[in-house]
Write a protein that binds this DNA or RNA. Structure first.
Length: 267
DNA sequence: CGTCCACGTCTAC
DNA sequence: TAGACCTGGACGG
């Protein structure tokens, strides 16, 4: 579920709920199969502070010892259904909470994830197999494409490459549909040709930024920290779930305008 | 009841 | 390029 906009919103929500708060431990649910050793938090007796950042569909949470200089970084991805929720006590732990940050005041930040596709691990930096953030690192994002566009993988249709997190970190199924639709680009145009279209690249920044602005998609049970949404995601979407669709080579459904139907049949 | 579908990766023939 | 990993909501009989 969460794409660039939702991951960004979630890290902001995480920070708003944890700023200046002291944490004592991190736990996982018994059902979770993630093997990461969560005892490796800073060892301060006074606990640690936390701060989240996002880059595309990936987030990191930095844990800093309250008095020491100890620091550790946890990388968190959200799969299809992960989101953060804060509760005031253990007895209020939501169903499907799988990663829990326990504060000294008894409150808990929970990674709620019905499908359990979310993952976490200790890291020293952002994943190397993911590119720059198209919204918050736009120039690096463009540079990364230009430097790699000679590669064979750029012969693939743009609709397939748009889902490749090495080049389009944060773009998922609804964003690719909206970007291609607004760019007026045939989804089966070879990627190296399509990215010559400056409009397409500009939309890789504009479209997720808009999704962010309206408060992101409908994550079940997750409330946008910016309060009442002026527009729902359903109203905002122009293509995804509304126009034509077919299954792409990776098994995902691609949404596109009917004017590309014929060309799609020929491929 | 059953079958299909979902805003995402992973790894194994 | 299948499947595997998961739960639950929508919808059909």
């Amino acid at each position: 579920m969460p794409e660039l906009a939702e991951v960004k919103l979630m890290t902001e929500f995480f920070n708003s709920q944890t700023k200046s708060k002291k944490f004592r431990a991190v736990h996982k649910s018994p059902e979770s199969k993630v093997k990461t050793d969560l005892n490796l938090t800073p060892t301060d007796v006074d606990g640690f502070y936390v701060e989240a950042q996002s880059r595309g569909k990936e987030s990191i949470i930095i844990l800093k010892g309250v008095k020491s200089n100890e620091q550790r970084t946890l990388n968190v991805t959200y799969g299809m259904s992960g989101y953060w929720k804060k509760v005031h006590e253990l007895s209020k732990l939501p169903d499907h909470s799988h990663l829990m940050f326990e504060a000294f005041d008894g409150s808990i930040m929970c990674l709620v994830d019905v499908r359990r596709f979310a993952k976490w691990k200790w890291v020293t930096g952002w994943s190397e197999n993911r590119g720059p953030d198209p919204v918050f690192e736009f120039d690096l994002f463009v540079e990364n494409l230009k430097q790699n566009s000679h590669k064979k993988i750029f012969n693939k249709p743009i609709c397939e490459l748009l889902m490749d997190q090495k080049y389009f970190n944060g773009i998922g199924n609804y964003l690719r549909a909206e970007i291609l639709d607004r760019a007026n680009v045939n989804p089966w145009t070879p990627a190296n040709v399509a990215i010559e279209n400056g409009k397409l690249l500009a939309l890789c920044r504009i479209v997720p930024a808009e999704a962010y602005k309206i408060g992101g998609g409908s994550i079940k049970d997750w409330k946008n920290p910016y309060g009442e949404q002026k527009m729902t995601m359903k109203e905002w979407l122009q293509c995804y779930g509304k126009k034509e669709s077919t299954i792409d080579k990776t098994g995902r459904r691609v949404w596109f305008d009917k004017k590309y139907l014929i060309l799609n049949e020929e491929k």
